[in-house]
């Protein structure tokens, strides 16, 4: 593979990833935000494929498609104005957040550009998928199994947290909308 098409593809996918990432927080509808986030993730997955991590990139894209749909369903269940196209600005500590984001970006990019990264590129990119498979079920099997047990524990924990009924009765017994102002009576 020659360098120019790869560089062009990288530039395009990077632009999509970053611009879509910004648009996530600059759009009126949460569903649109989810679609932008998915676009950002898909572009990152594509960059990972360009970097030679074919399996990881494709798995990321596969995972995120399901995740976006879960997000959409959660929005419908709980959020106000879930699929709406009305203007929506729901932010707090906006300036601090912008400053923190900018500082994080500059610091991390600075670290990256400061150099010192060793130059040892992948020798055989075509073998990456097979290598990972042998690693998963070979030297790193314990890590792999631990990840699996972690996910199992997460599943049990998530169900326990989200269960409608616990040992002390219904989870939503006597729940009510809290007041938006500190000294107000709660909304019924």
């Amino acid at each position: 593979m020659s360098d120019l098409p790869v560089s062009l593809a990288f530039a395009a996918f990077s632009a999509v990833a970053v611009v879509a990432g910004i648009r996530v927080f600059r759009t009126d509808s949460m569903v649109r935000a989810a679609f932008y986030l998915l676009a950002s993730f898909a572009a990152v997955g594509a960059i990972m494929v360009l970097l030679g991590a074919e399996f990881l990139g494709m798995v990321l894209i596969l995972m995120m498609a399901g995740e976006m749909l879960v997000m959409a369903i959660v929005m419908v269940m709980y959020m106000m104005n879930p699929a709406g196209l009305n203007p929506m600005v729901m932010v707090h500590q906006h300036r601090t957040a912008i400053a923190a984001g900018a500082v994080a970006f500059l610091a991390l990019a600075g670290v990256g550009l400061a150099g010192g990264v060793p130059q040892r590129p992948v020798t055989n990119p075509g073998a990456a998928t097979g290598d990972l498979g042998r690693e998963l079920l070979g030297n790193s099997m314990l890590v792999f199994q631990t990840a699996g047990v972690t996910l199992l524990g997460t599943m049990v924990g998530a169900i326990a947290i989200a269960a409608p009924r616990g040992r002390f009765g219904d989870a939503d017994a006597d729940s009510q909308e809290p007041a938006l102002q500190p000294d107000e009576e709660p909304e019924a």
Binding site: S40, M79, M90, F105
Partner: peptide, 25 residues
């Protein structure tokens, strides 16, 4: 360049996590 792109995504994420009110966002 990849690190700069990754840092940009991280910075946007920091902004989003600190500024958004809605849990999903």
């Amino acid at each position: 360049t990849v690190i700069v792109v990754g840092a940009a995504l991280f910075g946007i994420g920091v902004y989003g996590a600190l500024s958004q009110q809605s849990f999903v966002m």
